[in-house]
Each structure stands twice: as structure tokens, then as C-alpha cells.
Amino acid sequence: MALSFTRIFDNDWVGPGLVSLAAIIGISIFQPSFLSPFNIFVLLSAIAVNMVIALGQLVIIGIGQMNLALGAFGGLVAISFVAVMELYGVPPFVAVIIGFAIGTLAGGASGFVIARTGISAFIITLAGLQIFKGINLGITEAQPFYGVPQSVKDFGNLSMLGPIPWLVLPMLIASIGMWYLFTRLRIGRYILAIGGNRTAAELSGINVTATVIWAHAISGLLAATAGMMLVARLQIGQPTIGDDWLISSFAAPVIGGAVLAGGHVSVAGTFFGVVIIAIITQALVLFAIDPFVVQIVLGGLILWAVGINRLRELRVAKLNERA
């Protein structure tokens, strides 16, 4: 019995899940309006978008790399999405597909360069960040597009069921899809295998080049999804969309127990990581604390999570030694 109890605590999502629960209970005692339908709606909208962003980084963390260009992908897709609707009168459904295509291609292209040249993903995606951000600003000249159709605005601001926004739908699809990918699909296992030990993966016959390209294409697809979700929520095509994704996209997976060197990720843990960040950001607003503090808290959360993960690693190593 005791053994299974500690096993539960070894799951990545349990710790963050308990912290989320404690935070919700604690804050709602001091501030009952925290659990008002309106506040839940706002909270879920934020969680939905940030979860998709975090998943976009999670897949790259899984393969042992990082994607600094995630926000630049999202921003470029966001403005392209609105631009084709406003300038060419493309129906929203087609515009969404164009957005997916741009994100996937951009991600795939950066994956291709990384895989074929063997240059570190950090440098390639840093270059990608500047290139895609530059194209974004070059097209928009830093001015937003306003021509967002009513149906898109409704998707980002209306509720599906009670306090649950429509935006939760793409988040659910993306989360379940990624969970399925990592646990059931071959490509997901390949990604984690390469992240865990690239040489071993290569020797056991995994096509590393193709897998790296796939991982980056999926990351681009998720960034595109998040970018378009933000357009729906903000109701305009802001060129600044994606500028502030970097820190939170790493914070949530790390809080969720992802190993930065690759090979180990948790979709459920990442979800609770996103929830914790959203709750803290909201709480700062509710208690009228300076919004600038959010940055400090986010940084602190990353350090805290890294520390916890490190302690767990050490404990696992010690247990293995004993066994």
C-alpha cells in the first residue's frame, strides 16, 4: 500500500496538480469572486491559449532541443491569418488552414536546417526568430490588422457551455493529440528516444533527420494554433502576438516535470504547470498587486521547478543505487 502511495507521488502531474488545487482553494477563501463564472471563463481562456503554446515547446523539449522561434511563428501566422481574410476576403475556415500550413512549413523548415546541418537548435531558432519576426513587422509595419470576422471573434469570446469558453476546444484536441502522440504513436516514441539518447536512437535504426523535422513541424503547427486562438481572443491581428511566449512556454513544461535535456515529458504535468501560472497571474490581478511582479514570479517558478526536478532526479538515482 505504502509503495503504491509513493508511486502516485512519482507521477509528474501529481505535485503540480496538488499545488494547483491548493492555490485554487486558498485564493477562493480570501477572494470568493475567484470562483465566479466570469472569472473561471477568463481563467480558462488564458489556460487554453497558454497550454497550446506550452505544448509547442514541449515537443521540442522532448527531443532535447529548444525552439526560441515559437512566438515568432505564432505572430507571423496570427497576422497572416487576419491578412488573408481582410485583404483577399478568404473565408475563416480556409484562412485557418492557410495558418496551419504556414506554421507547419515554418517549423518544418527550421527542423530541416537543424537536422541536416547538425548546428545547434538554439542558434537556428534564434535566427528563425529574427527572420520570422522581421517578416511579420515588414508586412505589417507594426500596425495591427483589424478585419477579423465576427465568427472568429465569437469563437474567442463566447462560451461553449456555462463558464467554459470555446477556446478550450482546440486546447483539448491539441492536448489529447499530443498525449496520444507521446504514448501511442511511433513518432512520439522516436522523439523521446532521440531526446533520451540520440546515438542509441540512431543506432537502433530511428531516422533522426525525419523525426527532428517532424517534431519542429508539429511545434510550428501548435504555435500557429495558439497564434490564431489569440487573434480570436484579442479580436485583432496584433503584430506583437508571440513576443512574450518565451518564458512561459518553458516555465509550464518544466513545472510539469519535463527534463530539459530531452527524453521525458508529461502532457498532464504541463497542463497543471499552465494552470499554476494562470492562477498566480490572476491572483496578482485580484489582489491588486503590481502586474510587473508577474515576471519575477514566473522566473522564480522556473527555478523552483528546476530545483524540485533536480531533487527528484537525485532521489531516483539514490533508489536505483540501493536496488
Binding site: F122, I247, A261, V294, Q295, L303, V306
Partner: peptide, 19 residues
Amino acid sequence: SGVHSFIITLASMSIFFGI
């Protein structure tokens, strides 16, 4: 911590700038 400087300085950039 023995953690790669990427993640540590990612956190510290947020903390330094935030403060």
C-alpha cells in the same frame, strides 16, 4: 544546481528584469 545555464538564465532574465 548542475542545471544548464540556458534554463537558469531564462529564469533570471525574467527575475532581474521584473525586479
